[in-house]
Simulated scan of single mutants.
Amino acid sequence: MSTITISDDDFEKFREFFYRKTGIQFEPTKRYFVDKRLIERVLATESGNFRNYFMTLRFQASGQELQTLTNLMTVNETYFFREEYQFKCLVDSILPEIIKHKQPGQTIRIWSIPSSSGEEPYSIAIYLLEHWPDIANWDVELISSDIDTDILAKARNGLYSPRSVQHLPLHLLARYFKRQPNGDYQIDDSLRGSVEFTRVNLNEAADTRPYRGIDVIFCRNLLIYFDDLSRAKAAEAFYDALHPGGYICLGHSESMSRITSLFRVRKFPEAIVYQKPEKR
């Protein structure tokens, strides 16, 4: 049994440091969760105590331990076709507006963040193939990002438990997945190749700067883990990433209007989404 303890002062120091690095703020109610993972890493790194471990976390040149801890601290709970009404909104309302301002053959860029283990971006790909007749006329670039490098590796691998695919219609399961001997499902290779997975920390301007000219962003159930300042910073990063007239879809309990006035509220029959104003 571990004798390593995390004092109130240790917890506050770590909480403030992790917030500065990631934009994620742990409430005191998450104390048990945070302490448990910190103690795991103190033991795994043979640091001896929290103070030594925290020194490594702050000053390690490679940043590898911070990445390892971030992977442990982030939540990755998702499944295929989650909040499907937004995919319907994408096909029925958003894309018809976007293609009005593009020439045939031009690229439509969709960014899904966080990627988690890949269920959302792969769901978007499947939904477009199944429900958007115009897909044959357009080049769609699907990018999906996460701060967690372990979960990105899982997403690229495309192997899912029966629980992850439980909401998929059976004919889609048969069309796009191969059942494995252990009961898991391997996604089709062509779908795996259709999504580019990248590591992005929304709190780091250098990470988000390469993302420009995006037509649609899916950022669902991430901003609930941020405080007001981090949400505003993320909203500005998304605004910069979007093409004028581009759209962002948030989780059903999230509202861009409570974060910033940069975006227009668009009420489509299927969903409420947010639009970067077009240039005048």
Rank of each mutant, 00 (worst) to 15 (best):
R20H: 13
K21C: 04
K21E: 15
F26M: 07
R31M: 06
R37I: 02
I39L: 01
E40P: 00
R41L: 07
E46K: 11
E46T: 03
S47Y: 02
G48A: 08
F50P: 01
R51Y: 04
N52D: 12
N52V: 00
N52P: 01
Y53S: 00
Y53R: 02
F54V: 10
M55S: 14
L57K: 08
R58F: 00
A61H: 10
S62C: 03
S62I: 02
L66N: 01
Q67E: 10
N71W: 10
L72W: 02
M73Q: 08
T74E: 10
V75S: 15
V75I: 15
N76D: 09
N76L: 12
Y79I: 08
F80I: 14
F87C: 05
F87P: 05
L90Q: 10
L90A: 12
V91P: 05
I94C: 03
L95K: 07
L95I: 14
P96F: 06
E97S: 14
I98Q: 06
K100A: 13
H101G: 14
Q103R: 14
Q106S: 13
T107F: 01
I108V: 12
I108Y: 05
W111H: 06
S115D: 05
S117L: 04
E119G: 04
E119W: 03
Y122A: 10
S123P: 05
I126G: 10
Y127M: 06
L128N: 06
E130Q: 15
W132K: 12
P133G: 03
W138A: 11
W138L: 11
E141P: 02
E141L: 14
L142C: 02
I143Q: 13
S145Q: 04
I147M: 11
I147Y: 04
D148K: 09
D148A: 14
D150G: 07
D150S: 15
L152V: 12
L152R: 09
A155S: 11
R156G: 14
G158D: 11
L159C: 13
S161M: 08
S164Y: 00
S164W: 00
